[in-house]
């Protein structure tokens, strides 16, 4: 069997998967985005409360998918809860893979980078008239 550092399903990853940080809705959501990994159907939605000073007052996610995509979402939300928009912009894809920790094959890196992609888009996606903007429900047929 593979050695520990190669093991994707490390305890802290499974902990995030089983008991995620801030999975749910953001009460005072100002920014929101959702997207999916078209190859495997992982789905992640991010809801943010960004104040006038550019601080992420609250960050929540919701979604459906594999252990990697959901645990990565939880880690990312935990990291940026209370941080700034500027810090999100500085956070690269490589940073995301490092945050996740376990070594991933290219196909599974896509699962890990999905929440990162969604967060990067969410900071540019203000919610209008109390109705979340976002990409809409990807399971619905586009009109």
């Amino acid at each position: 069997m593979p050695s520990n550092e190669e093991e994707i399903y490390q305890e802290h990853i499974l902990d995030h998967y089983e008991d995620p940080y801030h999975r749910g809705r953001c009460e005072h959501c100002t920014h929101c985005h959702e997207d999916e990994n078209p190859l495997c159907g992982d789905h992640v939605r991010m809801e943010l409360h960004i104040n006038d000073g550019g601080n992420l007052r609250e960050v929540y996610f919701d979604g459906d998918g594999c252990c990697i995509s959901q645990a990565a979402s939880s880690m990312l939300v935990e990291k940026f809860d209370g941080k700034t928009v500027e810090e999100v912009k500085q956070f690269s894809a490589d940073d995301m893979l490092r945050l996740f920790g376990a070594k991933l094959t290219p196909n599974r890196q896509k699962c890990c980078l999905l929440p990162w992609r969604v967060l990067q888009a969410a900071i540019y996606s203000p919610v209008h008239r109390g109705r979340p903007a976002g990409a809409g429900d990807p399971s619905k047929k586009p009109s």
Binding site: I8, Y9, C40, C111
Partner: peptide, 21 residues
Amino acid sequence: IHAHDIAQRLDRRGIAVRPGH
């Protein structure tokens, strides 16, 4: 238990199956 996680566990036992739609 997502199909990707099943396929990943199975791969570690040498078993190639396909997850997804």
